[in-house]
Design a protein around this nucleic acid. Structure first.
Length: 490
RNA sequence: CGGGAUGUGGCGCAGCCCGGUAGCGCACUCGCCUGGGGGGCGAGGGGUCGCAGGUUCAAAUCCUGUCAUCCCGACCA
């Protein structure tokens, strides 16, 4: 079974799909482009939600829930927004089915809706319609709201977690009295995302600004975090948008300021999705299976008891449950795999494929010696630890794995980041190893498009740090204010 | 939506060219032996061959259509 995982070298895309399948993260659905998130995958999402939700609340946000259906007319109100999303909306036009004697079950033509409903591709419109009723005075601001929801975008080509027609995400929507405050909010969230990616997912990210062509439909400025996958392709891991007054104007959302004047509200929106699970897989996992960072792993430690005779079984399991209690009390998510009928070696492989960070093996010899075998998923190292030190030892190991995964990913990204000063070098780096390529850019859409057309690489972002450096765009020959990050991307 | 590939027990596949009524490995069930990195032996259960038409005495196999999935392109978190 395990040897059925395609190696990364052989076929990276297939490897990615194999990991999802063997680690039981998701399954295909009867509906094209949709996915079934299995318990292993959903538990991962729940842990992500929990960590992010805490950070949102710590930065003053509250959760709410808006409907999945949006009146079609709402979507038309913000011009750029329409352009961006009109092509990929699921539309509800009827409200019931009926059984036709000849045709069987059909849409009842008499149930046509007065106004079509759009299945939300994102919720700006319905939220700004609401905010326009909620907000009157500067005293009503800011509104700092988030929702956990599903959205639907009718995609042509889908991939599990990375791009599905329906996906789970959170979308924050905030309203502010000043531009400065809204921009600050956008950046606060960008930092939350970056912190989450690096501290919890152990995925290093570049914080930056999107170019006009990559900007969210309806935004004034889109900030993003960009991550590098093992195959040299970049992945946008999260976006935070400064929306200016675009939606406030479209939905007539004004507030009375302290000078008794009416002003349009300033807005932001921001989101991360189940796509992050795809990033997690592609950054850390190896040819043996999934590798999970301890902070997000649904199970951090799996204990496999080993025994032959009944009396051994009894003493080993007794010890195993004692260890479970001890580690659980220490705040560690541990399971004891006491299933009979699965042999130890089989279980070892099972937890390896599923990415459990630490595996313990406890046999009669260990019970006799008051020891236990500790194996790390990230580097395969095994050691025998004294039973008395176990909790501390595991806590240290989990931390070491968390840090080690980040360091390894960071090194990989650094190895996959190049700075070039000629278009020839740019192309040869892209074709040989991919990765991020830092190159001067003249700031025009023309050059950006030309590069995209010729190399398939896009500007992933204009980095917030380490950008400014006078230079020349090697493609156009025009002056450049700094190096931007190019990459081929998912 | 264009190009390519593939649909056969739960999973992975063979059979298809050369029609004759379905097989292998894994998984599953039961029993015994086993148990520190995917065990062994024995006995079992499970498939109208993606779907719909057509050709034929006879279709997994040939023909037409259709649907789905994967890969590659254009669009996107």
């Amino acid at each position: 079974m395990a040897d059925a995982i395609t190696s990364r070298e052989q076929d990276y895309s297939q490897w990615y799909l194999d990991i999802i399948k063997f680690a039981k993260l998701a399954d295909y659905s009867p509906v094209r482009g949709c996915m079934i998130i299995r318990p292993n995958g959903y538990a991962l999402w729940e842990n992500m939600q929990q960590a992010l939700d805490k950070m949102f609340k710590e930065t003053g946000h509250q959760n709410a829930y808006f409907p999945i259906f949006i009146p079609q007319s709402f979507l038309a109100k913000e011009a750029d927004h329409v352009d961006g999303f009109a092509k990929e909306c699921a539309v509800v036009t009827h409200s019931r089915l009926k059984v036709d004697p000849e045709l069987g079950l059909i849409v009842d033509p008499d149930s046509k809706l007065e106004e079509n409903l759009i299945v939300r591709p994102t919720s700006e419109t319905i939220i700004w319609d609401t905010y326009s009723r909620w907000i009157q005075s500067w005293r009503d601001l800011p509104v700092l709201m988030n929702q956990w929801a599903n959205v639907v975008r009718w995609e042509m080509r889908t991939r599990l977690f990375l791009r599905t027609m329906e996906f789970l995400w959170q979308e924050g929507h905030t309203a502010h009295s000043t531009e400065e405050e809204a921009v600050a909010e956008t950046l606060t969230i960008l930092d939350v995302y970056a912190t989450f990616a690096e501290d919890f997912m152990a995925v290093p990210v570049i914080k930056g600004i999107k170019t006009a062509s990559e900007r969210f439909a309806g935004a004034v400025e889109t900030y993003c975090i960009e991550a590098m996958m093992q195959d040299g392709k970049a992945l946008q891991a999260g976006t935070s948008h400064f929306l200016g007054q675009n939606f406030a104007k479209a939905f007539d959302c004004k507030f009375q300021n302290k000078n008794n004047e009416l002003e349009y509200v300033w807005a932001t929106s921001w989101g991360v999705s189940t796509r992050l699970i795809g990033a997690l897989i592609m950054v850390h996992s190896d040819d043996k299976g999934l590798v999970l960072p301890p902070k997000l792993a649904p199970t951090q430690v799996a204990l496999v008891p080993i025994y032959r005779k009944d009396e051994e079984r009894e003493s080993v399991l007794e010890e195993a449950y004692a260890i479970k209690k001890e580690l659980t009390d220490a705040g560690i998510r541990i399971i004891v795999d006491d299933r009979d009928g699965f042999r130890p070696g089989w279980k070892f492989n099972e937890y390896e494929v599923q990415g459990v960070p630490v595996r313990l093996a406890l046999g009669p010899r260990d019970v006799a010696n008051s020891t236990i075998e500790v194996a790390r998923r990230d580097n395969g190292q095994k050691e025998t630890v004294a039973r008395a030190d176990l909790a501390d030892s595991i806590l240290n190991t989990l931390e070491a794995i968390q840090n080690g995964l980040f360091e390894r990913a960071l090194k990989t990204r650094e190895d996959m980041t190049a700075s070039v000063d000629s278009y020839e070098d740019f192309k040869s780096v892209l074709d040989s190893k991919g990765g991020f390529v830092r190159m001067h850019w003249d700031g025009t859409g023309e050059t950006e498009n030309q590069i995209k057309a010729e190399t398939k690489a896009t500007i992933r972002c204009i980095p917030l740090e380490g950008y400014e450096e006078e230079g020349v765009d090697p493609v156009s020959g025009k002056p450049s204010k700094g190096r931007v990050y190019f990459a081929r991307s998912y």
